[in-house]
Design a protein around this nucleic acid. Sequence first.
DNA 1: CTAAAGACTGAATCCACGG
DNA 2: GCCGTGGATTCAGTCTTTA
Lengths: 365, 365
Amino acid sequence: MKTHPINTILQGDCIETMSSLPTGSVDLIFADPPYNLMLGGELHRPDNSRVDGVQDAWDRFESPESYVAFTNAWLKEARRVLKDDGTLWVIGSYHNIFRVGAALQDMGFWVLNDIVWRKSNPMPNFRGTRFTNAHETLIWCAKSPDARYTFNYEAMKTLNEGVQMRSDWTLPLCTGAERLKDEEGSKVHATQKPESLLYRVILSSTKAGDVVLDPFLGSGTTAAVAKRLGRRWIGIERETRYIEAATRRIDAVEPVRDVALLQAPAKRSEPRIPFGSFVEQGVLEPGTILCDASKRYTARVRADGTLLAVTARGQHSGSIHQVGAAVQGAPSCNGWTFWYLDRPDGRVPIDALRQQARAEMAHHA
Amino acid sequence: MKTHPINTILQGDCIETMSSLPTGSVDLIFADPPYNLMLGGELHRPDNSRVDGVQDAWDRFESPESYVAFTNAWLKEARRVLKDDGTLWVIGSYHNIFRVGAALQDMGFWVLNDIVWRKSNPMPNFRGTRFTNAHETLIWCAKSPDARYTFNYEAMKTLNEGVQMRSDWTLPLCTGAERLKDEEGSKVHATQKPESLLYRVILSSTKAGDVVLDPFLGSGTTAAVAKRLGRRWIGIERETRYIEAATRRIDAVEPVRDVALLQAPAKRSEPRIPFGSFVEQGVLEPGTILCDASKRYTARVRADGTLLAVTARGQHSGSIHQVGAAVQGAPSCNGWTFWYLDRPDGRVPIDALRQQARAEMAHHA
DNA sequence: CTAAAGACTGAATCCACGG
DNA sequence: GCCGTGGATTCAGTCTTTA
């Protein structure tokens, strides 16, 4: 039986090593595969200094076909290891992202978003022959169109000052103290990703305790951020020098202590309270009149917690939601926020009753 | 012998019609093919209004395979018609752009840039299920790696206030007076592109007098901008109603005398700096304690950039502004100046972080 | 007349759970 | 698996109507 290692780096080829992991065992995969840059000769700045680009053997492929074969192979194993409701992130540039995206769509993955990492401090185009290549692309996808994936909508919205997080993220490159250096002061890994990028990836699409797999761990950014955010992790890496640097780095990470403190709870996860319970408990008398914000519609509360409304279009009865939708002629309605109640201290939405009940439940818990 | 029509709209299927054009005869192709969105049922806004999505027959394909076949067919003709030193632009979204990009790379096209059109006013994600889809992607490519293509580096730099034009362009959607409407006031074309986008495309990669071909002309944006910029143009379109609207539109265009007089569209809605970004980028650890100037109140920073404060009046969580207001019992509060941070070099308002980040952004810009 | 408030709109793969 | 129901969910802008 396949064992399930956790919080460790597995040394080896990413495809072989993934094949040793159990089927449907990880919640999230973040993959930063070789980009297959196919750089020609060396690149020099206007002052003739040499640009230290990606020259490593791991980025060399014989042909476009062999890159596609490699992509299909690792994606296939990733798909097997991923839970049915898990999601996959892949990062790339125009050199490889189209082939990767087409391959994963052909394999049945369902794209949820393509995300643009807009670099606030990209390397300029020294020759002035193209637009400054100032971004990279991430693809976020589920295993199927009907998968129930994790998306921490509220956390992303608050992280973005109260408006929805968009598909373009402006973040700086990994530089300065965050960038791993060897004894001689040169960078350990050519393509180390910034922790801020992984922070957003992991915070948006996993829950605390989830298992995050990175099949191309490199300098260990994914594992470091997963550990910091109270997620479990598995890394796969071939080269010993990267493993050594990543291990030191991950060991030094302190997880955030209070997991409950990590993020505000989503509204969707709050306990459900039936409207009828307020009638049942005597908070509302049967016969109480409700109205909408504009006072165009009124409805009467019945003993079983349903409403009764009479309009020009006829008589409507049913739940607070059904009657709210019916009187407006709308396809749906949130009755909690649509209906109001006259109280001595003013008109309040009936949602105020629910909020109060929830606050009392939290107090007793 | 094949004739070379110019400054006209050719009615017909794009592949057949392109095949009637001479080989190696156009300098630039801009293509806005169907995205094959595959939308499900109806979508409503929270106010219950219905979203008027793309449901035209031209966007429906039998299968992913038939979309790929269609893509290969039109790309092949486009490649033939294009001069050896000409370039091709294609716009798309995550629904189709990966398949398109892979197809054109397989065909030998050489990608020069992928360009992100960052929409300053995208439609939100109404259900809170994904990141707001706030961009589209353009691929710019030459016929071969050694092609001597046109790139007006200086014009782009000037258009971008003296710094190199990046691969991400922030531009608004096509709305208001620019959007073509029919007699009943509804939009003529579901996916009319803004002229500002085509300005950049045509100005960056053609010379005056060059021939610009758009095989999916639609509402005629490409032809209108080409004419305005003193380029020649050919449009291909199948549907009579689009041709009629585009013809009126193009006829009304006055070519500019002096292209240098064209001014850059105002930059709108540059990224703001959310408080959460400092947590994300590791400037602040989750769990960090903030306090106000008088040290009466303290709050704890959470991983999503919200604060959590406990006072005699209860527990408060939310943005730096909301929690600042709540602990004081005030109606509002500027959290940037209210909350302070203890640093080795003394206590500073958190606004110092923001000022520093803005200074760095200005430096990089 | 101006100013404020309300209506309308955009290439959208847009719900979750219990019976 | 399907079906019914609860109830959660929007940003930047333009244009129209009201005060």
